[in-house]
């Protein structure tokens, strides 16, 4: 089987059925754009949830004159702790002042700094749940020099529940979208194959092998997938630019989206064309 002839035949069918190819390309591009848009929303949702997750921490307030260095090294030894950051009472006041710029007079009622020094305890991913927080907080409380600990236990579990619901919903939706995209591409490729039924008949008649007959159509499916993927990527970039003007903090890993769009296009193109050809090559 000659790849050269297969590709040449593929190009010929594209150029001689240009309008059908363009129609089919349009449908493929829209389908792949929908998939890309879904990925864009999902990636940003998880990015946001990840930021929230990263923020899960325990704050341990220190007693006056507590040895924060010794406490830091002891807390770091606790299983599940990733990092400990010391916040002095002066730093805490500065932070508060920065947060309450317009209501500075609230602080002026105090003669001295009322804020205690604290340790911000960052956790490993496995401990960022209500049980982990409770366990680590309990261990921290046992240390000499700790006055109090605070953490959002129930809130954290709520966040985890929401994440898991979103994940299941997301996977379900993804499967539906992938099947729809393959179905749409399969149907449009089938149209182009129907338009060339005589050609396939003649190929079979003169003794072309099935793989040879499939080659130009698979090639067409790949070209359609690459172009469709590229158009879908451009549309996603445009969407991202528009989204940025409304929302800050939009996450868009451009390189991954580019490669992903092309790869999905190629894979769906191949699957679509082989499904569509199956009937003809029996």
């Amino acid at each position: 089987m000659s790849l050269r002839i297969g590709i040449r035949e593929g190009f010929r069918t594209i150029t001689r059925n240009a309008s059908l190819f363009l129609l089919s390309l349009l449908v493929t591009s829209i389908a792949l754009f929908l998939l890309s848009l879904f990925a864009f929303v999902t990636v940003n949702l998880y990015h946001f949830l990840n930021i929230l997750d990263e923020k899960i921490e325990i704050i341990a307030f220190l007693e006056e004159n507590a040895d924060y260095e010794a406490l830091t090294s002891n807390i770091l030894k606790i299983n599940g702790v990733r990092d400990v950051i010391y916040v002095s009472s002066e730093q805490a006041l500065k932070d508060l002042q920065a947060e309450l710029q317009e209501t500075e007079e609230v602080l002026s009622v105090f003669e001295s700094n009322p804020l205690p020094a604290s340790l911000r305890i960052k956790l490993l991913a496995k401990s960022r749940n209500a049980r982990g927080l409770e366990e680590i907080s309990g261990k921290v409380m046992l240390l000499r020099g700790i006055r109090e600990t605070i953490y959002g236990g129930e809130l954290v579990d709520q966040l985890k529940k929401i994440t898991s619901v979103i994940t299941s919903f997301d996977i379900g939706l993804l499967l539906i979208i992938i099947f729809s995209v393959i179905f749409v591409i399969f149907q449009t490729i089938k149209l182009t194959i129907f338009a060339r039924a005589t050609e396939i008949d003649i190929m079979k008649l003169v003794g072309a092998s099935n793989s040879f007959i499939a080659l130009p159509f698979t090639f067409e499916g790949i070209v359609q997938g690459i172009l469709g993927g590229f158009i879908a990527f451009i549309l996603t970039v445009v969407t991202q630019r528009v989204a940025v003007s409304f929302l800050s903090n939009i996450y868009f890993p451009q390189g991954y989206f580019f490669v992903g769009s092309l790869l999905c296009g190629i894979i769906f193109g191949i699957i679509g064309s082989s499904l569509a050809l199956r009937k003809f090559l029996k």
Partner: peptide, 26 residues
């Protein structure tokens, strides 16, 4: 095999129609 309706590819020249049979059989 030949047929009553010839089954020729209308978008190819006579030469291309014949070459097609050789092409597809490598």
């Amino acid at each position: 095999v030949i047929f009553q309706d010839f089954k020729l590819l209308q978008d190819r020249t006579l030469e291309e129609n014949i070459a097609f049979a050789l092409d597809v059989t490598d």
